[in-house]
Design a protein around this nucleic acid. Sequence first.
DNA 1: AATCAAGTTCCAAATAATGGAACTATACGA
DNA 2: TCGTATAGTTCCATTATTTGGAACTTGATT
Lengths: 273, 273
Amino acid sequence: MMTNEATGAMDESRTEAGTGTLGKAIAVLEAVVTADGPQRFTDILARSGQPRGTLHRLLSHLVEEDLLIQRRDLSYEPGLRLLTLAYRSWSANRFRDVAEPHLQRLHELTGETVHLGILRETEIVYVDKVESRQTVRMSSQIGKASPAYCTGIGKAALSLLGQPQLERVLARTEFHAFTSHTHRSAATLLAEIEEIRRDGHAFDREEHEAEIRCVAAPISIPGGELAAGISVTGPAYRVTMEQLSAWAAPVREVARAIGEEAVIRLGPGRGGP
Amino acid sequence: MMTNEATGAMDESRTEAGTGTLGKAIAVLEAVVTADGPQRFTDILARSGQPRGTLHRLLSHLVEEDLLIQRRDLSYEPGLRLLTLAYRSWSANRFRDVAEPHLQRLHELTGETVHLGILRETEIVYVDKVESRQTVRMSSQIGKASPAYCTGIGKAALSLLGQPQLERVLARTEFHAFTSHTHRSAATLLAEIEEIRRDGHAFDREEHEAEIRCVAAPISIPGGELAAGISVTGPAYRVTMEQLSAWAAPVREVARAIGEEAVIRLGPGRGGP
DNA sequence: AATCAAGTTCCAAATAATGGAACTATACGA
DNA sequence: TCGTATAGTTCCATTATTTGGAACTTGATT
């Protein structure tokens, strides 16, 4: 018989080894943080692929920094330092700060959930959210990453990229069929991105989650060369495609307003090359 | 004349240099994350106290890991990786998961804001929060750290520590007088902690913020040797000390229930020495 | 008591970090 | 326009840390 959770963890995707000393440490940290329960030394050994001696030292350092906690039964869990660091970086995020009242405004107009997300590699990271009734909890999605190719904000953000950069991202994208509407290859996605560039807005037609639709518009963040976007999301039974189409114009308008205010308040950074 | 923000940053508290390679990297990360705006190389140089060459390399590594972003104008900002890591560690936090329905229950009983916090060194880190009307935003406090000596949960958690451990924490505490009710030295605090140990609950009598009171009770987290607590908080005009005293019993009861369920569901870890 | 698995420690070789100083690029002022 | 100050970057010999296989300790199980 094997250990309680070891059997299930055997074939899980290994966290790819980061380069450099810091990279390795963060990779190990991520391996522990992305696992669902406390991880024993052997679990992490399998997930991280590091040699025993090396891993042991890395873990001690992470514990020393309170990025991990070691329990009395020797298993490792995320420490509190991560939460504190994230709190500070989130609450001091100037772009989010600029966007917030606009998101509020859009929520009041539509009555549905409004998201703000930033593109990071092939994923969209949700940075803020406004909704009326907190179904689960308000913050439950902040920091969450979803694939870009099957979400409204993701596709909107992708539409901001130059063609070579876009193709590089799509080459690294794995097209997982979440629903029957999910894009299955780069070909159809590229065609849709053409449309998004023309229209200035993107739809998620139940591509990531069944019964969930949204309309989104892109925003480029000045100074950081970042691609972002906002969306209005709702359940399919309540939000028809006609409704979403009607919201497209205000969503574009709010996105434009955020972008404009961001340029003024955050500065465009030094110009191009 | 000096740089825009350099003058103000000169006398700011320097992030104390972490030990080891990872420690230094995280210390630099923290220096950037705790600053309020984008930090230029020279700003970080002053804040971190690292030599130029070393700092430059550390920053490149942090940018490589997407823990920091470098803007086009060369200044540094927190990257998205931190938020994603924190999201995962928060949403997978089993203790929070156990506590959540209990917090909800306590909120329904009192109608006021309920907090869950964990002691970390001399500070309380807020890990969860339940409130009805999101005045600012629900998640705005998650990950926030406040001094233990002047908050309800903080004092409750301190009361769980053994005397030598407690004295070590207090020795490192700086007693800042936030209001006229704030403890000014370890002496009065120690006396109050005696009472808290006896009563099983703690009050914050406008010690951290004026016009804000709370009643709290301690919980010890099994397996991790952590001290935690919950509290019910409200504005002084609405929540009298009599009201708080009346809530003390239910707060203790909910804390007990969380602790009990945590032992069952999370396991006590291997026993003491 | 013997066996096995999990976790920890050890240490010489390989690698990365260190940090002062020289260098380059950009902004500023005359 | 040309110097001059300031900010940011690169260099490299020295020093410290990391590396990782293997031996060792611990503690549970039979």
